[in-house]
């Protein structure tokens, strides 16, 4: 297959189709999660990545299975992009034994070490130093390995962000700090929570190159991530990527979204939907037709339905499982 879309990573048309498919996985998985949650089939809480598919799919695609990620409370997209099976993810959300964490972690603790997923996290900012530790291990062992640390805009105000960036910089570690700036924390606008126009500027304080990109532009995501990964692999240290995006849904369950206007939401949904934008790009490049696109959507919808069937067929962990794995024995 050809290379119709110019990009720095040298991705082929097929690569872009693969990424596009992943984006649908993320969208449809989380749409399903929302429905199941409202129907009371999933407990706890869930944070949806709808509207933020390009950041996860575009960056995750460039990683090898041996590369690592750390993720957040809004982590379904990152896990899907790092090739964790949707079946096991869904089962985890259902609290079933066949889930990624044997039904003991739920949405915010999905981890998949075999796939290089060190774990999502219920604590905002907790992933930063963990990612740095992983990157330090790569450096100490001389491994050709990169870690992407995903995090949200709000989390850059936690102390852990600042400690981690400094550590990564002084030791020039192979880590990429990938901030999905969806412009809000839970209810707080990032504009009111920091006094700088771009979060990427914070890199400078630690001697780290920072870039701000359009996170809903798949090529921009691929290019910036590729450059950061290459730099890390060559031993030239970390990069701070700020990808501007938008979460289409509320923060979590029962969010009335009084902190933003319906006009603003509509603006993003209409003009910056990463799925629409990517579809348009691929169609214009001549590597996708509207029909093929619909086919992909239908296929992935089926895959998500299968994930629900897989999850529902799983058993709840035995009561005895609650008492295991607290210590070595």
């Amino acid at each position: 297959m050809g290379q119709s879309i110019q990009n720095k990573a040298g991705l082929t048309d097929q690569d872009f189709l693969n990424i596009y498919q992943k984006m649908w996985d993320i969208r449809l998985f989380d749409e399903k999660v929302e429905t199941l949650f409202l129907a009371g089939k999933i407990h706890g809480t869930t944070h949806l990545s709808i509207g933020q598919e390009a950041t996860a799919a575009g960056s995750g695609y460039l990683l090898r299975p041996t590369d690592w990620i750390t993720s957040t409370h809004r982590g379904h997209g990152h896990s899907i992009a790092k090739n964790t099976e949707m079946n096991q993810m869904m089962a985890e959300l259902f609290g079933r034994e066949n889930g990624t964490n044997n039904g003991k972690g739920g949405s915010m603790h999905i981890a998949d070490l075999d796939k290089g997923n060190l774990g999502s996290n219920g604590i905002v900012g907790a992933g930063y130093p963990i990612a740095v530790g992983a990157a330090l291990s790569s450096q100490m062992q001389g491994k050709d390995q990169v870690t992407i640390c995903y995090a949200g805009d709000g989390s850059t105000n936690e102390g852990s962000f600042h400690e981690a960036l400094n550590l990564a910089s002084i030791w020039q570690l192979p880590v990429v700090f990938f901030i999905e700036n969806n412009q809000y924390g839970m209810s707080s606008s990032i504009k009111e929570m920091v006094n700088i126009p771009h979060l990427s500027e914070r890199g400078a304080a630690y001697g780290i190159e920072g870039v701000t990109i359009d996170g809903n532009d798949i090529v921009a995501v691929v290019d910036a991530t590729y450059q950061a990964i290459e730099k890390a692999k060559k031993g030239r240290g970390p990069t701070l990527i700020e990808a501007k995006t938008y979460r289409f849904k509320g923060h979590s369950k029962s969010d009335q979204r009084i902190y933003r206007t319906r006009e603003e939401e509509l603006h993003w949904e209409t003009n910056h939907d990463p799925l629409q934008l990517t579809e348009k790009l691929l169609i214009q490049a001549g590597i996708l037709t509207k029909e093929a696109s619909q086919q992909i959507e239908a296929n992935r919808k089926e895959a998500v339905e299968q994930a629900v069937i897989f999850a529902e067929a799983g058993t709840l962990p035995a009561a005895s499982a609650l008492y295991e794995n607290v210590y070595v024995d």
């Binding site: 407990h43 706890g44 609290g95 039904g103 003991k104 972690g105 739920g106 603790h109 709840l316 962990p317 009561a319 609650l322 008492y323 607290v326």
Partner: peptide
């Protein structure tokens, strides 16, 4: 409660 990690989801009913 037992000396284990707070469980997820329905399991808390047992715990």
């Amino acid at each position: 409660a037992p000396d284990t990690v707070f469980p997820f989801g329905q399991a808390e009913n047992i715990w």
